[in-house]
Deep mutational scan, measured.
Amino acid sequence: RLTVMSLQESGLKVNQPASFAIRLNGAKGKIDAKVHSPSGAVEECHVSELEPDKYAVRFIPHENGVHTIDVKFNGSHVVGSPFKVRVGEP
């Protein structure tokens, strides 16, 4: 089962990169992540390998409000996905 680490749920800033990590815990497959902005825009997140069992997911929010992040592994949502994060002040 995958572990999502260091996902900041609030206090993110517009046009500043945000990232979190995913540990695969021995699982093999493909991570896919997309961020949905409050206006409905959908953007791919950048996924990069940090070490053999750990990946970083990076995105840049372009507007204030609550964004939804879909994180999928081999086509299925990971536990807790979709995640909600707040950009800007509430």
Rank of each mutant, 00 (worst) to 15 (best):
R1G: 05
L2H: 01
L2A: 06
T3H: 15
T3L: 08
T3S: 15
V4Y: 09
V4H: 07
V4I: 15
V4S: 09
V4Q: 14
M5I: 15
M5R: 02
M5V: 14
M5W: 05
M5K: 08
S6L: 10
L7V: 05
L7C: 08
Q8I: 07
E9N: 10
E9Q: 02
E9S: 05
S10V: 04
S10F: 08
S10I: 04
G11T: 13
G11P: 05
G11Y: 14
G11Q: 06
G11S: 12
G11I: 15
L12R: 01
L12W: 01
L12M: 01
K13I: 15
K13R: 10
K13Q: 13
K13D: 05
K13M: 08
N15G: 13
Q16S: 08
Q16W: 06
Q16N: 05
P17M: 11
A18F: 03
A18K: 03
A18N: 02
A18G: 06
S19W: 07
S19N: 14
S19A: 04
S19K: 13
F20C: 08
A21H: 15
A21Y: 12
A21I: 15
A21M: 14
I22Y: 00
R23I: 11
R23A: 12
R23G: 06
R23V: 14
L24I: 01
N25L: 02
N25C: 07
G26F: 05
G26L: 02
G26R: 04
K28S: 11
K28T: 13
K28L: 09
K28H: 06
K28I: 12
K28V: 09
K28A: 04
K30V: 12
K30C: 12
I31R: 01
D32Y: 05
A33T: 15
A33L: 14
K34E: 15
K34I: 12
K34F: 06
V35A: 07
V35E: 03
H36V: 13
H36R: 11
S37A: 09
P38A: 01
P38Q: 00
P38T: 04
P38V: 00
S39Q: 09
G40T: 04
G40H: 14
G40L: 09
A41H: 14
A41Q: 15
V42G: 10
E43N: 13
E43R: 07
C45H: 13
C45G: 12
C45Q: 04
H46G: 08
S48M: 10
S48H: 06
S48V: 14
L50I: 11
L50N: 13
L50F: 08
E51Q: 13
E51C: 13
P52H: 09
Y55F: 07
Y55E: 10
V57S: 08
V57W: 02
V57H: 03
R58I: 02
R58C: 13
F59V: 06
I60S: 11
I60K: 08
I60H: 05
I60G: 03
P61M: 02
H62C: 13
H62I: 10
H62E: 14
H62K: 13
H62M: 11
N64C: 09
N64H: 13
N64A: 12
G65T: 01
G65E: 05
V66Q: 11
V66R: 09
H67A: 08
H67K: 00
H67V: 10
H67I: 09
I69V: 09
I69Y: 05
D70W: 08
D70G: 11
K72W: 07
F73L: 03
G75W: 07
G75S: 12
S76Q: 12
S76R: 09
H77V: 12
H77C: 08
H77M: 11
H77K: 09
V78N: 03
V78W: 02
V79N: 13
G80C: 05
S81E: 11
S81A: 04
P82S: 02
F83H: 04
F83K: 07
F83C: 06
F83Q: 02
K84C: 10
K84Q: 09
K84P: 06
K84Y: 08
R86M: 06
R86Y: 12
V87Q: 01
V87S: 08
V87L: 02
V87P: 02
G88Y: 02
G88V: 02
G88L: 05
E89Y: 08
E89A: 11
P90R: 02
P90T: 13
P90V: 09
